[in-house]
Design a protein around this nucleic acid. Sequence first.
DNA 1: TCGAAACTGGCACTAAGTGTCATCCTAGCA
DNA 2: TGCTAGGATGACACTTAGTGCCAGTTTCGA
Lengths: 252, 252
Amino acid sequence: MPSVRSAVRKKMERPGAQVASLQARKQRLARVDIGARAMGLFLERGFDKVTADDLAREAGISRRTFFRYFATKEDVVTSAVEDFGLALLEEFRRRPRQEPPLASLRVAIGTAIQQFAIDPGQSQALLRLIRKTPALRSQFLLKQDDWADRLATAVSERLPESACSLVLARLTARVAMATADAAITSWTEGCPEELPAVIDRAFEALDALVETALATGRGHSGRGRRRREQASGAVAGRGRGSRNPQQARASG
Amino acid sequence: MPSVRSAVRKKMERPGAQVASLQARKQRLARVDIGARAMGLFLERGFDKVTADDLAREAGISRRTFFRYFATKEDVVTSAVEDFGLALLEEFRRRPRQEPPLASLRVAIGTAIQQFAIDPGQSQALLRLIRKTPALRSQFLLKQDDWADRLATAVSERLPESACSLVLARLTARVAMATADAAITSWTEGCPEELPAVIDRAFEALDALVETALATGRGHSGRGRRRREQASGAVAGRGRGSRNPQQARASG
DNA sequence: TCGAAACTGGCACTAAGTGTCATCCTAGCA
DNA sequence: TGCTAGGATGACACTTAGTGCCAGTTTCGA
């Protein structure tokens, strides 16, 4: 895993140039072309069965040059979903500050998700490829994690400063991402509904989930709630009593 | 990334032998020893600055043999947290079926977390190492994801069969994991409280988060709730109207 | 004590990246 | 039009993670 982004990409991202210089545009084109051909091979043979040499050959460039366009093989695939995270963050920031963060996130996700609607078939194929390839999945999760972190920061800026505001923000971001992920997963696995509907369903399920949790076995008040001893007590009791924490298996 | 677990590990896990045979125990010991020495080096120099050759030398074995004990360099670190996932699943299954899944998960997490209490300093060091090393973090996330999947399956077994039960189960599992993760992260980053307390706080934050979301801008009823048009409508409106989905940047 | 099974190390091999350098292409300028 | 500086490219060598294979050694059970 390379530590820095390829020189080429750094070039292409140069924010200064108003009208991207000719060669910058050519480079962007080249990147898109290389990426598309690579995706073709991945989809056809499976990610692990395609070597960097194959990719280079397919694109008519040297292996060295390939790695100037993409930092890693995985990068070809994961950078294709990069936009989603960017859009998500952007849309969230666009929402009114007084809106509850989770509500903002719901809207932002709904908007960002539209990328996948441009070419649903291709999006599903991409997500399926990621899902079934551990090397890709791990990189994808890493990316999601970064998005969640950045979202958490954005959320915390809305919250009143307090000891647990960061935990709360982090939690909010992750719960939203988890919801989106559960929905996207369902969609990827062939759920016939349209993605926005699935997302909506997932958020409604989140409501239901929490309502159930709140309604059953717990009090449901804003602040000074008690009656949680039932659960919390069980944690401590069980642990200290019936079970030996030392039985640390060698984890085989 | 190797596709199969090393032969050695397969051996060690043999479920048949009542009293693990002598060599099985020796092997376990060897693995623990190799792992401990490796962790020492990782903590000292950083994961990326230690080669497999270093690890082998440190343990007095050949590189080849090292890879018979650990499938990858990452495996040394991530297998150290493997037990958490195992315990989590086990504890969840132990909970009464009629308990709301999220409540069960809360308890299960509280119990599983006790592993980290055995040696908090070391646990924190381990988690920090994972957190700051992308290669480790991605593998760790992969593992978490697997746990979430397995938990989701376990949760769905409790739910009444229905169209969205899998989504709901997946969501439940992920929300619980997200909560645990937010708490563990806070703890790792030097929060002075004890881990169980942080976990508890995180779950209370989850309550608060959802209560807020439910209370504001949304109806709050069990089934036929409406007044969600505000949010849902915004999704569609915003997307189709004010913004052009085509503006797909070349993503850098 | 013997023999099969398992453990080990050595070696060669594949494959992902990376540093370096010579070459080439091209935009911009005189 | 011709020149040149700077970026893009390819070739090559190098490091490192893993893996397959084989031959030598250890170990366990009969």
